[in-house]
Design a protein around this nucleic acid. Structure first.
Length: 580
DNA sequence: GTAGGGTTAG
């Protein structure tokens, strides 16, 4: 396409960037941009390049959006001249709002649409649904959808994909079921949307096999989008075998499908297979995309094989992908998982355009290797950069770093800063970190207060972690409360019973220990967890965490079983490890 | 004649 090559040349001339860095975005534009949009791209080229040049970190993303900006500017200009926009112009403008995630302009255009009496146009309404859904305003998207008099494949798919992409897989599935009751038959787009919505959602993951059956019946098996969403779904719910069968059966394997399969292997801890597939691709001269590099680097990290990881790094350099943010992120993760934090930091330092995901990855690398203070130094460095916008994930890493290094005051400082300085509303994850911060320092009362103060229901992970701290500091009262919460939240888990018993045990409350054992029996909870055991001495029940008897450091068992003599201990330990 | 929905990554 002529327009795109001008764009490409202009960008290259201004910036002299590695080809792969620019082309990945150009490729993306080529897919998305048609018609008038390309004109915008052409006209926007030099303007865009200036922008790329001026703003550094995430400017390439902004730049692509600037073309949408161009379309929107001319739309607004026409509006100021009281020019009546056509249906087509309205659609294009809405499309740009969706891509730039601008619900504000979108709702202004929405008002104009109502004003012009075009609110029953199917094209316009699908675009509106898409604008709201892509900006996360799912309620508005639903409202537009519900107010439509008739629906077609596209409008149904728009709302279903909107729900999916906003993490409402269950609702997406519900609407899909409603769609089946109508005359409108779902197409491959619809199946991709509903299947991807069911990914990583336990409550709906069972439906995927049913959807798969639909796909087969309706003949969408030859659609690569459908197949890759199925592969992704199966692999993320641990059904790697099904993913493999789909992959093997699919004839036209393109790079995206191969990438889906490589990350499927990687997710399922089958790093060897991921590497094998990658090598096969490489030898067969399939064009290697940066996605493939990202997935295979992930696999190297998961397998902690530094040697292969380094080879991949060499390949990255050879392919000229050493400025692709995704690849760099994967390199940083790989090196840090292989314990080579210096190499990770070297990759990071050599990166010209660091976005907040990369900063976060680097911080996480330090935090995970127990270098919390250095992680925080990185955060402070980031703050000095322009265009830096830390998000929730970033703060989770910061707070975790504080947590691992026992920096309570600093943790509280960052938590407050997140709210006041960055206007972020803390999510469950960050509250969980805050609770952990207090609890690990032994300030159980303050930790308990956070449970009440936060506007969320605490989940099992939070109560479990709190319970462990109660055990650590021997707080019977709060420990009891946490354990009883967990009895409700995880009725089949023996762990909270055992920890509470351990707390009672530490406080010498033998009769309470006995009650817990009784309660466990009454509630039908089976004690089948490795590392815990009951021991009776002089008619008193004691509970111990016994560690792993096969582990070379099973001396820990001796320590935990300090109240019992050696003979009795070894008997009990081996009893508890006998397979049931 | 021109317009709307889909896969992989912290």
């Amino acid at each position: 396409m002529h327009g795109l090559s001008v764009y490409q040349i202009t960008v290259m001339r201004y910036l002299n960037w590695p080809l792969s860095y620019v082309t990945s975005y150009i490729r993306e534009s080529q897919l998305r941009n048609t018609g008038p949009f390309n004109l915008g791209l052409l006209r926007g080229a030099s303007f865009t390049a200036h922008n790329l040049f001026d703003k550094s970190p995430e400017s390439h993303v902004v730049a692509i959006h600037d073309n949408e900006y161009e379309v929107l500017t001319s739309f607004i200009h026409g509006n100021r001249l009281d020019k009546k926009p056509s249906k087509f112009e309205l659609c294009t403008a809405l499309n740009c709002c969706a891509k730039t995630q601008n619900p504000f302009l979108g709702s202004q255009i929405h008002a104009k649409i109502l004003n012009l009496g075009l609110d029953q146009n199917l094209y316009i309404n699908s675009s509106l649904v898409n604008v709201y859904a892509k900006s996360g305003a799912i309620v508005d998207a639903m409202r537009v959808f519900n107010e439509m008099e008739s629906h077609d494949q596209v409008s149904w798919t728009s709302i279903i994909s909107g729900l999916s992409q906003n993490g409402h897989g269950k609702e997406a599935l519900c609407l899909f079921k409603q769609m089946l009751k109508t005359q409108v038959v779902p197409n491959s787009f619809t199946y991709v949307s509903v299947i991807s919505g069911c990914t990583e959602q336990e409550s709906v993951s069972k439906c995927v096999e049913l959807l798969h059956a639909h796909v087969m019946k309706l003949g969408h098996e030859s659609n690569k989008f459908v197949i890759s969403s199925l592969i992704d779904n199966y692999s993320k719910s641990g059904k790697i075998d099904k993913a493999v069968i789909l992959f093997e059966a699919f004839k036209m394997k393109d790079d995206i499908l191969l990438n889906s399969m490589i990350s499927a292997y990687s997710h399922n801890l089958q790093g060897e297979n991921a590497l094998k597939l990658f090598t096969k691709m490489h030898n067969a001269n399939v064009s290697l995309s940066e996605h493939a590099l990202t997935s295979v680097l992930d696999a190297c990290g998961a397998l902690t094989i530094l040697q292969q990881g380094k080879q991949m790094h060499a390949l990255v350099t050879k392919m000229g992908s050493n400025q692709n943010t995704f690849v760099i992120g994967a390199l940083i993760n790989m090196y840090s998982k292989c314990g080579n934090i210096n190499e990770a930091s070297q990759v990071f330092d050599q990166t010209l355009y660091k976005n907040n995901i990369l900063w976060t990855s680097m911080m996480s690398a330090y935090a995970q290797s127990g270098r919390g203070l250095e992680a925080l130094e990185i955060f402070d460095m980031m703050e000095k950069e322009n265009h830096f916008t830390p998000d929730h994930v970033c703060f989770t890493v910061v707070l975790t770093a504080c947590n691992h290094s026992g920096l309570l005051e600093k943790g509280i400082y960052y938590f407050e800063k997140m709210k006041s300085h960055y206007n972020l509303v803390p999510e469950v994850d960050q509250y969980a970190c805050l609770i952990d911060l207090h609890a690990r320092k032994g300030d159980l009362e303050s930790a308990r207060k956070v449970f009440d103060e936060m506007p969320y229901n605490a989940n099992a992970v939070m109560w479990s972690s709190f319970l462990s701290s109660c055990k650590e500091y021997g707080n019977v009262e709060l420990g009891r409360e946490a354990a009883y919460k967990l009895f409700e939240l995880e009725p089949n888990s023996p762990v909270p019973y055992l920890i509470l018993a351990d707390i009672y045990n530490g406080a010498g409350l033998w009769s309470e220990v006995r009650n817990i054992k009784k309660l466990m029996n009454e509630n039908g909870v089976r004690k089948c967890v490795v590392g815990w055991s009951w021991v009776e001495v002089d008619n008193e029940v004691h509970v111990f965490s016994v560690g792993d008897s096969c582990h070379p450091r099973s001396e820990e068992i001796y320590f935990e079983l300090r109240k019992i003599n050696f003979e009795m201990m070894s008997k009990t330990v081996f009893d508890s490890f006998r397979p049931e």
